[in-house]
Design a protein around this nucleic acid. Structure first.
Lengths: 351, 351
DNA sequence: ATCACTTGTGGGAGCGCTCCCACACTACCT
DNA sequence: AGGTAGTGTGGGAGCGCTCCCACAAGTGAT
């Protein structure tokens, strides 16, 4: 017996070779047809396609992956527990964009949660085995080792929300600076003059950019920035309450608040109410994210919308380019791939 | 030059062969160590493991898949659009159980949405290419061609919620019969005598079983079943309203309602209120699913809880067995693999 | 001592592709 | 006529594993 040569014969899935025999051509030619190479005559192509159809041929992915050294799969890595993934519409919107953009291609999307340490180790193993051609990274914290690991393994990756202005990975972001600026400009145009800002977690780059945008809007309008009106929050409701109380103590005369997130705004709103301030009559309130909270708040919250679905699409675009570029040892690091998408101010009754 | 032999050499990932050379053993031996075969001496095993560690060897999945004809991946197929997946806690709970059970193994989980026709076609192609070793099917409609396709392709599959009593696929279900019976027994024990039932969609097997359980509970308690007290619903809120109105018209004296789902119960509750019936004083109400709706209803709804997370775990157990069994052309179809898990009645103020 | 197992090991063959070289042909220039 | 490209095609080699056969060496019963 020659090895295990007969394994899986007899009625198994047809192979390239069998298609070639049926079409009366060579293996290489069938491969070219399957992969859409232009160097095939129309007659031959038709013959091969007929054979493929008759035999119900479907390429063996494992063989292709082995020979071509690629997997035709990319991973969306969520460094959070499943629970948060389902709780936040952010991920669902992002996934929608990613899925839509990917449906044009042959790429398979894998969704990988890496919330626990255990899961992180599994993921590391998984990536080390190069089981995907590229990685989409969402909601990565500043000190996460994941991005560096990906660089080390030379796996193409795109991050949503760069970790800093010096981000080395390809990244997609919304225009935090512009979004914050438009929120403040909106408040100014409504005649507000004493506009406070409750920031997000300042170790998140996007939160820093929002502070920058806040400052820029004021300065561009000829106002000077009063540091007393800026108080650090952390994206949470509790943080919003704390910061609002502090701001109210320091500057009881403030007439507007721009919060770093909708959740923060919800906390601020509560404190404002308790202090007897009416919204928007006494104090105008603007949030960030345009989440469900914003729509359901009383009064409905003006908020800055980020185009999350489009961000997902853009991430796929970038990633597919990275993957394609890598094939013929491309001009790496020449042009940095950073995409920034515009935000939109959604005006509601709170301002 | 011999072919493209040098491709990927120089600093590429180490191969089995290199590990073997380093450890001073043959290829076969390394393979045995990697795959945990017991037929290796302790000394040799240690030497190989050292070499693996030194070289940072990680097996090439594609090569393994090609040689062994398996993929080490299973798919969780959701024949719904992403939106519903995120909206319903059912999926999130199930995923939690599946993930937990799978984390013990080397299997990779793929999440595949097949809501649209386009996505369905892609899925069919995907499955035909045998890109997974097994499939988990959730929330499948009675007339879905997917299960048959899987049988045809001889891909191991487990379905959550059998399509009928004659389900051929391995399946995991909660005890719909017992759940319904315990709900009705509960109402009887509370002194209710005229207990109505709003069914789920009767083309869903689980809904039929609930009706059976309802009947059995009444009969076992020595009551005869009044068909006038059974009205078909469809799991929706609107269906609940319609059915409740009808029941109230037919039997204005009813003093309890067992609804086929919490959502249905919500619809029924609304109609009861409008008819001036107090819950639970005039009419007791029990739902099914123990969803968030149940907890937040006014008054909180007594409901039958299904152990969804455990169902996820059980599905993985079954599927892994199916996959293992299939390898050596096993005794197929002898014992049908049907698991039924117990439900639990969660009593709240509505009954 | 002989036979029969058992245990551990090496390595050939093969999984089904892609890549690339070689080789026909054809077409168009000198 | 000879050269030089360009097109289409066939098929060898190799991707990195697993499977299995062959065989060495040890162990015990006869």
């Amino acid at each position: 017996m020659a090895g295990h040569g007969a394994r899986g014969r007899s009625g198994g899935r047809p192979t390239l070779e069998e298609v070639a025999a049926r079409a009366g051509v060579g293996r290489g030619t069938v491969s070219r047809v399957i992969n859409g190479s232009p160097r095939v005559s129309d007659a031959t192509r038709a013959a091969v396609e007929a054979a493929v159809a008759e035999l119900g041929y479907v390429p063996n992915t494992a063989a292709r992956a082995l020979a071509a050294n690629r997997t035709d799969a990319i991973a969306l890595v969520v460094p959070e527990p499943e629970t948060r993934f389902f709780a936040e519409p952010y991920f669902s919107d992002m996934l929608k964009g990613v899925g839509a953009e990917l449906s044009e291609t042959e790429m398979q999307l894998l969704l990988i949660f890496a919330g626990s340490d255990r899961e992180r180790r599994r993921l590391a193993q998984y990536l080390a085995a190069h089981r995907v051609d590229g990685v989409l990274l969402v909601s990565v914290h500043a000190d996460d080792p994941l991005p560096d690991m990906l660089s080390q393994l030379e796996i193409p990756a795109v991050i949503s929300g760069p970790r800093s202005a010096a981000e080395t990975l390809a990244s997609v972001d919304s225009d935090n600076f512009g979004g914050a600026r438009s929120a403040v400009e909106h408040l100014l145009s409504r005649g507000r003059r004493s506009i406070a800002h409750i920031t997000g977690r300042l170790d998140v780059y996007g939160a820093q950019r929002r502070v920058d945008g806040y400052r820029a809007a004021l300065r561009d309008a000829g106002h000077e920035v009063d540091e007393q009106l800026i108080e650090a929050g952390d994206f949470t409701e509790e943080g919003g309450r704390r910061a609002m109380a502090e701001l109210l103590r320091r500057r009881p005369d403030l007439d507007a608040v721009f919060a770093g997130s909708d959740v923060t705004a919800a906390g601020a709103r509560q404190v404002l109410r308790e202090a007897g301030r009416r919204i928007p009559d006494d104090v105008a309130l603007v949030g960030y994210d345009d989440s469900a909270i914003a729509r359901h708040m009383e009064p409905p919250l003006t908020s800055v919308r980020q185009p999350i679905e489009e961000m997902g699409r853009a991430m796929i675009d970038l990633l597919l380019n990275e993957i394609a570029d890598r094939r013929p040892a491309a001009s790496r690091g020449l042009d940095r791939h950073q995409v920034v998408l515009a935000t939109e101010l959604v005006e509601r009754a709170s301002s």
